[in-house]
C-alpha cells in the first residue's frame, strides 16, 4: 500500500463526517446531493494529495477542498440549469420553496440554505467552531474582513430565523 493510499484512508476515516455535515448544510439537507458532493470532495482530495505540502493542517486543507468543491458545484449546477435568466429565477424560487429531505433538522438547513453560497460555508465553519484564523486560512480573506462578514451573516440569519 502506498503512502498516499494510507494517508487518504486515514483522512477519509477522520474527516468523512465533517465533510458530509458541511455538504448537507450546503445543499439544504438533500441527502443524495450531499452524498455526491461528499464523494466529489474526497475524489478531489485524492487528486490534490500530491500537492499537500503541510503548510496548513489536514483539517484546514480538507476544509479548503470541501469549500472549493461546494463553490464549484454551485457554479456547475447553475450552468446546467440556467438556460435563460427567467428560468434561473424560477429554479431559484423553486429551490427556496423545496422542502429539505431531513425533517429532523429542517429549521437548521432551511436557515442556512437562505444564505448565499460563500456565506453558507462560512457560517457552517463558525458552527463547527473553527476560529477566525482557521476560517481565514480556508477562505483566504483577512481576519478583519471575516469579522465584518460573519457579523453580517449572523444578522441575516437572525432575521431569517425570526421570520420563520
Amino acid at each position: 500500500m502506498t503512502d498516499n493510499t494510507q494517508i487518504f484512508e486515514r483522512l477519509y476515516k477522520d474527516y468523512h463526517a465533517m465533510v458530509h455535515q458541511v455538504c448537507m448544510g450546503f445543499v439544504k439537507g438533500q441527502k443524495d446531493q450531499a452524498k455526491d458532493l461528499t464523494q466529489e470532495t474526497f475524489i478531489n482530495t485524492w487528486r490534490a494529495l500530491d500537492n499537500f505540502k503541510g503548510a496548513s493542517g489536514y483539517k484546514t486543507w480538507i476544509y479548503r477542498i470541501t469549500v472549493n468543491t461546494c463553490l464549484k458545484y454551485i457554479r456547475d449546477h447553475k450552468k446546467k440549469d440556467q438556460v435563460t435568466f427567467d428560468q434561473h429565477e424560477n429554479i431559484q424560487a423553486h429551490e427556496e420553496q423545496a422542502p429539505v429531505e431531513d425533517p429532523k433538522h429542517n429549521q437548521l438547513y432551511m436557515a442556512i440554505g437562505h444564505l448565499e453560497g460563500l456565506d453558507r460555508l462560512i457560517i457552517m465553519m463558525v458552527l463547527d467552531e473553527l476560529n477566525y484564523e482557521e476560517i481565514s486560512e480556508v477562505v483566504g480573506i483577512s481576519e478583519g474582513n471575516l469579522r465584518v462578514k460573519i457579523h453580517r451573516i449572523k444578522k441575516r440569519l437572525k432575521k431569517i430565523l425570526e421570520n420563520e
Partner: peptide, 25 residues
C-alpha cells in the same frame, strides 16, 4: 442554531463507498 448543528452532527451517516473504492473511482 448551534445546538441544532451539534445535534445534526450526531446523526450517523454511512460511508457509501470505501476509501479504496473512491481511489478507484
Amino acid at each position: 442554531l448551534q445546538n441544532m448543528w451539534d445535534d445534526a452532527k450526531k446523526d450517523k451517516n454511512e460511508h457509501s463507498l470505501s476509501a479504496k473504492d473512491l481511489i478507484a473511482l
